[in-house]
Structure formats: C-alpha cells, structure tokens
Design a protein around this nucleic acid. Sequence first.
DNA 1: ATTATTAATGCAATTGAGTTGCAATAATAA
DNA 2: TTATTATTGCAACTCAATTGCATTAATAAT
Lengths: 124, 124
Amino acid sequence: MKRRNTPAKQAVLNLLNTSQAALSQELIEQTLKGTMDRVTVYRVLNSFCEDGLVHKIVSDDGKSYFALCQGCQETHHHHDHFHFRCLNCQKVECLQEEVKVKIPAGYRVESMNCLLTGYCKACA
Amino acid sequence: MKRRNTPAKQAVLNLLNTSQAALSQELIEQTLKGTMDRVTVYRVLNSFCEDGLVHKIVSDDGKSYFALCQGCQETHHHHDHFHFRCLNCQKVECLQEEVKVKIPAGYRVESMNCLLTGYCKACA
DNA sequence: ATTATTAATGCAATTGAGTTGCAATAATAA
DNA sequence: TTATTATTGCAACTCAATTGCATTAATAAT
Ligand SMILES: [Mn+2]
Ligand SMILES: [Mn+2]
Ligand SMILES: [Zn+2]
Ligand SMILES: [Zn+2]
C-alpha cells in the first residue's frame, strides 16, 4: 500500500515539525479545527507511526502523544529516551536523557515507553 | 474517610500477594469471578493506590496493572523501577532494575512509569 | 446487644480515547 | 483522460474506566 501525499498529512506533519512538544490527537484536532475529521487525525498519526516518521508516547493520563523521530534510521530506530509530562501545562516532551537499562537475561525488548510526570521547568 | 475491612478488599489483596506478576482489573475480575462486581475491583484497586499499598503501571496495551509495593515507606515511596510486559503471555512484571535518570534542571518529577515491552524469559 | 453513622457495594448508565465499516472523494498510475 | 485504489468523513462501535444512586454492611456510639 503506497502512501499518497495529502493536505491532511501535510498539515499534521507541519504541526509536528513546528512543535517542540509531542502532540496528542486532541491537540492536533483543535489546532486544525474544521480542516479535517477527528478520525483522519488518528489515521494520519497511525500511518506516520507505521512509516517510522513519528513515535508514540503512551501517557498515564490515558492519551497518546506523538513526536517526530529525530535521527532515526529507517532500519534502526532508537527511541530509548525518556519523556516528560507536565501536570500543569500538560505538555509532553522528549528528553535528551537516554534510557539505560540492563535487560534481564533471556528477555527480548521490542519497545520501551518511559515517562516521567511532574512539573516542567516553566511550571515547577 | 477511614477505610473499612471487607471481603472484597481481602480477596483482591490476597490475589496480589500471591501473584508474581502485576494484575489488571480484568484478570482479577475473572479470577474472582462471581464474588464481586467489576466496579468494586476498580474501586478497591484505586483505594489501594491511594493508600500506597499498591502501585499502578500504565501499559501501552491500554490497560493498567497493579502490583504490591515492596519496601515502600508510607512517606517515601520508591517506584523507580522498570516494568516489563510480554507480548506473548501478557504478563506484566516489576523488574529489579532501577530507573536511573538525570532529571533536567528546574524540573520536578512526581512519578515515573517506565515500561519495556517484548518477550519474557519464558516466551522469548 | 442495639442503634446510628457512613464506607463499601451492585447495577445501570456514562465518559473518553481510539477503532472500524462503508460509501464518497481524490491522489497517483496507466 | 481514464482507471485504480489510498484517503477521507461520518456514524457506529469497542473497551477501559468512572460516576450516580439506592442498598448493604463494617465500625463506632450508646
Ligand atoms: Mn520521544
Ligand atoms: Mn512495580
Ligand atoms: Zn509545564
Ligand atoms: Zn511471556
């Protein structure tokens, strides 16, 4: 299934590109309000994930957030960094800090989702 | 609001005590099937969380899992360990491995939720 | 032991994030 | 230009979790 380039994808990609923070479907929808359907946002984000263009951060607030992959190879993704969610401003961001973990013998890790929650620099 | 001791709480606590893995509401419900309502399980688990008896692990499968706190002080909790979810057997477990992260200057971390997903020893 | 207080429970209804089916639309290939 | 099929919009649906409310029962007071 080859992807097609559409206004919806461009708009969402644009938002992600110009945003420091990771974005939720909700936030994207209300920013682009009226220009596309709820479901389209979900579908665009999911296709970006499948294509390795963005990575999804599952948050403990029950939502998911999406951020552009920085310096990921098509074949060799490294999303082994922490994320941070601010309880005040609600922003979710990628931290520089890498996740360092000794994986127990015999285990195979496919993905990691590491989220710190608290108050960000601006809100602490 | 002082807590009361009830059969429901005892049953759930018992399960958590005798389980190696963290448990989801769903799993608890079907194990104790018939003895209590779905909602009661949720409420019991939430009260345990509030009381610092168990900690909640938010998983990327959309559910939450609960595990007894080990060696947590009433005042000084340390849930700074990784968790692991197996894509095959679905078990979620607490890992020994501690989360070591340099929190960016100015940030305040209130909680962390660090989950590795993949295949466990038995399923790899 | 009896009664009063209110936490805990069961049941039905609701919330909220995310998905799915399907017909209509539009990007790309022929 | 025409054909192919990915994408979209809309409505309906799924699924974990929460909420309202009347009833039950654990604990405190008498
Ligand atoms: Mn990230
Ligand atoms: Mn744990
Ligand atoms: Zn903030
Ligand atoms: Zn397993």
